[in-house]
Nucleic acid binder design. Sequence first.
DNA 1: CGTGCCATGTAAAGCGTTACATGATTCA
DNA 2: TGAATCATGTAACGCTTTACATGGCACG
Lengths: 196, 196
Amino acid sequence: MALAQAIMASLITEGPSSGYDLVKRFDEYISCYWMASHQQVYRELRNLERQGWISAETIVQTGRPNKTVYSATDLGEQQLSAWILLPSEPTPIRESLMIKMKAGHLVPLPDLIQELVYRRQLHATNLNRLKQLESETFAQPAALSLSLRLHYLSLRRGIRYESEWVAWCDETLEVLNHWSDADLNPQPNLEPSQEQ
Amino acid sequence: MALAQAIMASLITEGPSSGYDLVKRFDEYISCYWMASHQQVYRELRNLERQGWISAETIVQTGRPNKTVYSATDLGEQQLSAWILLPSEPTPIRESLMIKMKAGHLVPLPDLIQELVYRRQLHATNLNRLKQLESETFAQPAALSLSLRLHYLSLRRGIRYESEWVAWCDETLEVLNHWSDADLNPQPNLEPSQEQ
DNA sequence: CGTGCCATGTAAAGCGTTACATGATTCA
DNA sequence: TGAATCATGTAACGCTTTACATGGCACG
């Protein structure tokens, strides 16, 4: 629903871009607040052009395929501004790992622990990547434009989010490891008497 | 994708339930890890019954509409166990508020601040609700079953998540209020020369 | 000469959101 | 008498995901 606005925000703050540029930017840092696949981005660009929020210009390139560069129109910028002023609700949470926790008594404890270790690693890796971005882009805070400072605040949210995940994994792993030691290891409920 | 598993997990840990019971449970605490509307729940229950993961029993009630109570079948429990053992990725993040931050220079700073104050309040309210649940259900930790202890861990994640949101809002509001004081208030880019 | 990057799509299926709908009971 | 709760849906639309597809260039 807000993919259109995420694209508009990027075109306005980062300037005219090709679909490919946008996809790269989504992968690099936009995904820390709005994830989108390349298929979604290309489709949305066509929608936005049809509605007149962006305009397309074909850049002829020799030796490699032509590219289409999109720019936000005045209409697009006005529409984005108006959308920002509308109140918005938090994203609904959908975390499959928590479903696994809830029904965790169905599987052996070591399997649950393994899954948590894996998730901790994913979030720790992403956290490092975001901290890297933070130190690269925001090394000299005095020199930052308003736009960059606002960008920084959204990056902070990404860093906090990933830190929180790592902290929860650590907290939870400590509890589960303690259960392991105490030999509370649950027996899986897999009905071993059944063949199929 | 995992709505089916969220329902199965609830039927297995909380026992046979009607669609309405499940919807209430989603509203009460499942939503802190998996949000679902009543329409989704009812549709998914029909799918699950068709696939044999759950079985339905009609309870005839006098004076009020009959209800259908669903129970997990052995097949359903096995399928859920197998699914838990599959590795899973984090949910893609989609936070429209961060898009607003990114393009925040397009609107007056007080409007951005107002939106943040509103969001802080939403998360603070939800945090209090979850803490309430925590203190109600987990007052006597010694008496808890394995299943309830696992439930508690997922509730902890919800509490951490909402705390983190409140903390980010506070951090960000402090920065923005400071800008306000310093008279860095950006002028909106709304092209006042245009009539339409 | 193969791998990966540049650059851009189509198609189908599944999932989520919004709107609409029904009809009884209980409580103020 | 009206509002809220119990209890359960259908339909349409739109967004997301997954799979498949193309074709040149650069680098080792």
